[in-house]
Design a protein around this nucleic acid. Structure first.
Lengths: 109, 109
DNA sequence: CTGTTCTACAACCATTTGGTTGTAGGTTAG
DNA sequence: CTAACCTACAACCAAATGGTTGTAGAACAG
């Protein structure tokens, strides 16, 4: 029947960004305290450039934003995108329970 | 410093499975009513084999399970995995709010 | 029995992902 | 000023992703 597919690339990006444990840990780190990209990189057994790329993925998903401070780039978390993802999953749960209240969230997904 | 990375491949798989709008729609469809893989495939503008692969991705993430009924394979949703993802995001939110109650969930991630 | 339906799976392909190294430029410390 | 530091970005690579077509087997309809 080929239902017209309403795709939400923002949602795609959020879940894709969350699908890597290093990136989830970067979120956690930047929630605990704001750190520069170099500071973050010290936590992981990979190159600085790799961490830089992970931060870029989080940034495209709006889960994090960077703020230049001198020569450093400070990584701030953005909990609103996380909340959005959590609410979307809640809506699925509601759907399963037969509560239609939030189905519109799913349909507009 | 190379902190030992506690990876949770199950969590990886759940978020990765959720990062595609076709797969999110398959979850929604199978929550609305249990359908065979062929039934599901009729909703999308792609081959049966492609939908079959999407279902397999959801299955590896435990978001869905298949039950053979005659020649058909009926797809059931499994809301527990969804709930697990939602709780994890809630825990991040708590962390951001400075509530430490659920930090252990994050640390064991 | 025969033909159709549903599923499984292999092979293939283009693109994306997650990592690397290397180069270069802006900023700060001494 | 110079050296060290932080970041940006390009080029490259292997593996995973998301799609395709094709083949084959099992189950059902008539």
């Amino acid at each position: 029947m080929v239902v017209e597919q309403l795709r939400d690339e923002e949602t795609d990006r959020i879940f894709q960004a969350l699908s890597d444990s290093t990136r989830r840990d970067i979120i956690r780190q930047s929630m605990l305290r704001e750190q520069s990209v170099s500071d973050l990189a010290k936590h992981y057994a990979m190159s600085f450039a790799a961490v830089q790329k992970h931060v870029a993925v989080l940034e495209r998903a709006s889960l994090v934003r960077k703020e230049r401070r001198g020569r450093e780039q400070i990584v701030h978390s953005n909990p609103e995108a996380l909340r959005r993802a959590a609410r979307l999953l809640d809506a699925y749960e509601d759907l399963w329970r037969g509560r239609a209240a939030r189905i519109d969230e799913l349909l507009s997904d």
